[in-house]
Design a binder for these strands. Structure first.
Length: 271
DNA sequence: ACGAAGCCCTGCAAGC
DNA sequence: TGCTTGCAGGGCTTCG
């Protein structure tokens, strides 16, 4: 389940292999992702040079002289570089054959991901227009969260997972950051104090930065066949640990569903 | 404007 | 063992 750190790790892994390379051919084996892959994508990309790559939220953006390829990995998506001739497996939906001889292969069993094309400026695209700030910039801080949350009755966990508030805080990291900040996930966003939001903003940054650093240790895998991103499961305090002992106080961690998402917290450490 | 629910999809685990 | 059922989840979309 690629969250922001995994997307960032993917970006860093594929960038050196794609930048300034030409797309020789695009092969689409399965067109039906979250939205259909644009029918004209292969002809649009053929022969075009990659001029830049970047990440916005959990989207990867590959830029060409007259447009941008937008990639989203959804829940189960993966991008890898494989050698030409590597047999495609069941869920290998797209191949981007590049001039170096490698293939950038898009895999996504659950097909929650997306592969789109736009000729608009990225910030004007409907998917990007309403996005909040990146979490790892100074735009996200306690004051910002405090201001944005006034009057909001939504649970604070749902609030920080709202991409119009701040992007890239998925379920795992929302759970972790709230634990580390000592805040109950179900508490109304508008009732969290400024001081608590300062802590929360800090912990969001720390948790994401640590995960990116962990992913970064296995960057070379992106050239291999198993391409799994480095995870940092061993550092998770609450996610996936419902019913187990809190690592700080030994109380049993509680589980509840908040906006359809598994939520785990320590009733003793989080208030 | 806000908040909650619905939906897309497959793999996996649990239950019978 | 082989089926069925339930759940997981990002995030856009729809509904109240």
């Amino acid at each position: 389940m690629p969250e922001l750190p995994e997307v960032e790790t993917t970006l860093r892994g594929i960038s050196p292999h794609l930048l300034n390379q030409k797309i020789e051919q695009v092969l689409v084996r399965h067109w039906q992702l979250r939205w259909p892959v644009p029918a004209e994508l292969p002809s649009l990309l053929k022969g075009r040079e990659v001029l830049g790559l970047r990440r916005r939220a959990k989207y990867l953006i590959v830029s060409f002289d007259d447009g941008h390829l937008i990639l989203h990995l959804g829940m189960s998506g993966r991008l890898r570089l494989v050698d030409h001739g590597t047999p495609a497996q069941k869920h290998d939906h797209l191949d981007f054959q590049i001039s170096s001889g490698k293939i950038l292969r898009y895999t996504d069993p659950r097909r929650f991901g997306a592969v789109l094309w736009t000729e608009d400026a990225i910030d004007q695209h409907p998917l990007f227009r309403h996005l909040g700030p990146e979490p790892l910039t100074t735009e996200l801080d306690g004051d910002y969260l405090f201001q944005r949350s006034r009057g909001r009755r939504m649970a604070v966990k749902s609030f920080v997972m709202d991409s119009t508030v701040v992007v890239g805080v998925g379920n795992i990291y929302a759970n972790e950051a709230l634990f580390l900040a000592g805040i109950r996930p179900g508490k109304a966003a508008g009732r969290i104090t400024r001081t608590q939001y300062v802590r929360l903003a800090e912990q969001i940054k720390i948790v994401l930065a640590k995960a990116i650093a962990a992913g970064g240790t296995t960057l070379r895998d992106f050239l291999g066949s198993d391409g799994k991103p480095g995870y940092f499961k061993q550092e998770l305090f609450v996610y996936g640990r419902g019913g187990e002992a809190c690592l700080q106080c030994q109380a049993l961690l509680k589980t509840k569903r908040l906006a359809q998402r598994a939520t785990v917290y320590c009733a003793n450490c989080q208030h």
